[in-house]
Amino acid sequence: MIRSLARPARQYGLQVVILVAIIVTLVIVAPTFRGEAAIYATLERLVLLGIATAGIAVTMIAAELDLSVGSMAVLAGVVAVQLSGLGLVPSIAIATLVGIVLGAAQGWLIAKLGINSLVFTVGTLILLKGAAWIAAGGAPITVTDFTITDPLLMRFWMFSPLSTVAILVLVAVGVFLVWTKWGREIYAIGGSRPEAIAAGVPIRRPMVVAFAIAGACGALAGALASMKGGSVTPDSYSNLVLSCVAAALVGGISLYGGRGDMINIALGVLIVAVLSAGLSAMGMQSFVSELLTGMLLLAVIVIEFVIGRVLGRRKLRRLQFAAAA
């Protein structure tokens, strides 16, 4: 019983403790951050941050990193707003499709060349941003008919259509990663690539799938956020990728791949979202939550590092003991 709890405790324990601590602190110090309104405000932050983080985290699990997600988001935002005449769902769907295709092409090229994805996506980050500027015609653009985006502003209890989509995306990506063969392949190439190759896992398919998911999530996040706002500037979302990487790392996804699942991603995104929603309910400006997120990130990484060291040492001692006996 204790042993069966040890793994989840190690995998999610720290993040759950941080999340509870933040919620308790906010409930005590922020009298305005209560109940339905607080949950609604938190969930609304999942739209951009949550969906995009899910995408980046999939590439992190594959031991890669897609830095171009922010540019994908702004390109999709521009496409969606430009096509808003077609209706709400078609324009967002086409924008997301653009993200899937570009993401898959990117993954294919990275796998084909065998190049470091960090290096390659620094280039595509600039390239896609340029494409977004061109698609926007070099200036901020707005939705022509604002009634089209009205459904996005509806609210059912504490959910909006957007936060519902965000939750569904998180669940879908999580189920895909853990329960399907293609998802398991992403874990395999991330956990230890030489062993995965030796075991016969194809490298190209999981790479294409991982980057297609990253592209799709980035595009969907950008399209939804831009349609909700009714306008998009071609240089927006330039900091998105760093916030997303921070959220994924706080949640316990490793940059070295193979570690963490959608519960980790959800916890990381929730920690950042609750923190920023709570602080903004207290009237703090956004840089305060950025500052705290940065400190939290450093704290989580140091704690994980120390835990890893201690566990490693304990295991070594146990092995030495066993060898001596």
Partner: peptide, 9 residues
């Protein structure tokens, strides 16, 4: 990344 965020904040 963390240091940059902290400095900015």
């Amino acid at each position: 990344l963390a240091a940059g965020t902290i400095i900015y904040g």
